[in-house]
């Protein structure tokens, strides 16, 4: 026999699987996959690791914000900075009740990230706080409803307060 039937069947099966996988990849690209945003806090050199451990009241700290967009569309983002403690941290559904001290905005296309150098003042401290959390909450603008929405993503950094 010139071409063995079993070999031909195996080759055909491989080709069918490859074809189906190819179609699945095209469809997945069209649907965009899982949609999410991400926020990260980096040190003043925009790297992970060398974070400040303490600060004096109203001292200015240099940090870096990292934002990533995987929403399948461009997003108009905003990060709100607050100072709280372990009782006033945000959750995935609610923001921190502490007052906003500063905020930063930007526009990011799908699949891209940005790092932004920021300076934050360790102010608006909770009463008698010796250890505070620098809280950064990520919001995106809902263009359909015309308002900012909390994404449920936040990052915080604990530092000690020296007086």
């Amino acid at each position: 026999m010139l071409l063995d039937d079993e070999v031909f069947a195996v080759l055909t099966a491989v080709v069918i699987i490859a074809s189906v996988l190819g179609v699945a990849m095209v469809v997945r690209d069209e649907l965009g996959g899982e949609r999410f945003t991400a926020i990260g806090l980096l040190d003043e050199n925009c790297r992970i690791g060398d974070y400040p451990r303490y600060a004096y009241p109203n001292q200015t700290l240099r940090l870096c914000l990292y934002i990533y967009n995987h929403m399948g569309k461009p997003v108009y983002w905003r990060v709100v900075y607050k100072v709280g403690d372990n009782t006033t941290l945000p959750t995935t559904n609610t923001t921190s009740p502490r007052p906003a001290i500063a905020e930063w905005r930007g526009v990011l296309d799908h699949g891209l990230n940005t790092t932004r150098r920021i300076e934050v003042v360790v102010g608006e401290l909770p009463v008698n706080a010796t250890r505070v959390a620098l809280i950064f909450e990520l919001y995106t603008y809902n263009t359909a409803e015309g308002r900012w929405e909390y994404t449920g993503r936040w990052v915080h950094l604990y530092i000690s307060i020296r007086r």
């Binding site: 569309k73 461009p74 108009y76 905005r105 526009v107 603008y141 263009t143 359909a144 015309g146």
Partner: peptide, 13 residues
């Protein structure tokens, strides 16, 4: 910026 971001979303779609 917001209306333009809305337009960019539409264009990207």
């Amino acid at each position: 910026v917001a209306p333009l971001v809305g337009d960019l979303e539409e264009l990207r779609r």
